[in-house]
């Protein structure tokens, strides 16, 4: 039992909890306590030192919006944001209840009456904005993967295609999202002209910008993975005279999955980083827009609220990375994959 939990935890990369499980299972407590001190104590001390340093320095820096907020102010802002979210949700619920009652009354008076159901139009809360950001980054990431993996496979299989694509990859790879954004905005405006569309233009612009910036690591890693498949696998495919698609789906893709997932993991990280900038400029109602609006707002709470966003972005980025690590381990069939 304990072993199973430990295996699961190390599979997920949650190695910090392993000593606790061991302790609960009654393994030599002295060793476990020492382990706990090293894997948890040291990071906690480091974080405490960082917090102390931060609150000391922040107090020294005076900006036009007041003092740079310290950890306590940021914590409070975070709580305020959650409270605002809760308040907004209560208001929304109240609105729908009122609407339902009104409609019920109307129907009771006259069963044939036309009932209007309106959507609540309150401003998005911080949690809504996080949701929008996640949805946008996954859309962009999905677009990037759908483009990058097939092209990467073809590049990896054929060195002439690789030679053809290589200069383009090298040139576009280092381009900043800020450079793409105006072009993407104009192209989206020109092409996406339906007014009753499902998506906001700002959403599409942000997602495509994320895709453009994040597809390169996936593409390069897929090509590398496919090109470095065990020669014997390809030989087996040749001996068995497998068809093109059978070869791709049964051999090439499974064999290069560890590499592909390494690429996807880097891509998702890049995408999340790019997203904030894209949302700022494209005014997509996510975390990027939140930061920008707070900055423009310029109240005495703005800096603390922006810092809350900074930590949120960091934590979500970290969680996304962990999720990708789990996938990566899941497809590597016991082969060792770097998981730093």
């Amino acid at each position: 039992m304990a072993n199973k939990i430990i295996n699961f935890l190390s599979f997920c990369g949650l190695t910090w909890f392993i000593p606790f499980v061991r302790l609960c299972a009654g393994e030599n407590p002295k060793d476990q306590v020492r382990d706990i001190i090293t894997v948890i104590g040291i990071p906690i001390i480091a974080i405490l030192i960082f917090l102390g340093f931060w609150s000391f320095t922040a107090a020294q820096i005076k900006t036009s919006l007041g003092n740079l907020p310290g950890p306590v102010a940021v914590m409070e802002s975070g709580r305020t944001l959650m409270d605002e979210h809760a308040a907004e949700r209560t208001k929304e619920q109240a609105f729908y209840e009122r609407q339902e009652q009104r409609n019920a009354k109307k129907l009771a008076k006259n069963p044939g009456a036309e009932v209007k159901i309106r959507k609540y139009t309150g401003k998005p809360t911080y949690i809504d904005q996080i949701g929008t950001s996640l949805f946008t980054v996954f859309t962009g990431f999905l677009i990037a993967s759908l483009i990058a993996v097939p092209i990467g496979v073809i590049c990896g299989l054929n060195k002439y295609v690789m030679t053809a694509f290589n200069p383009l990859i090298q040139i576009f790879k280092p381009v900043s999202p800020l450079a793409w954004l105006p072009i993407v905005t104009m192209v989206v405006s020109a092409l996406y002209t339906t007014t009753d569309g499902w998506f906001e233009k700002s959403f599409i612009t942000s997602a495509i910008t994320v895709a453009l910036c994040s597809l390169w690591p996936s593409l390069i890693n897929t090509a590398l993975g496919v090109a470095s498949i065990d020669k014997d696998y390809i030989n087996v495919a040749k001996v068995l005279k497998l068809g093109f698609f059978e070869k791709i789906f049964k051999i090439v893709l499974p064999a290069s999955l560890p590499y592909i997932f390494t690429g996807l993991r880097i891509s998702l990280g890049v995408g999340w980083m790019v997203l904030i900038a894209a949302e700022m400029l494209a005014q997509n109602p996510g975390l990027g827009k939140f930061v920008w609006d707070e900055f423009q707002n310029g109240s005495s709470h703005s800096l603390a609220r922006i810092l809350v966003a900074v930590f949120t972005i960091g934590l979500i980025g970290f969680m996304l990375d962990r999720i990708m690590v789990v996938f990566q381990k899941f497809v590597s069939f016991g082969q060792d994959v770097v998981s730093a």
């Binding site: 065990d230 014997d232 030989n235 087996v236 001996v239 068995l240 082969q335």
Partner: peptide
């Protein structure tokens, strides 16, 4: 070219691990 009329047992087993 290669074909299944000439089956090969390779030095490394080269099974597909998945």
């Amino acid at each position: 070219g290669a074909g299944p009329d000439r089956a090969v047992v390779f030095q490394s087993p080269s099974l597909f691990p998945w």
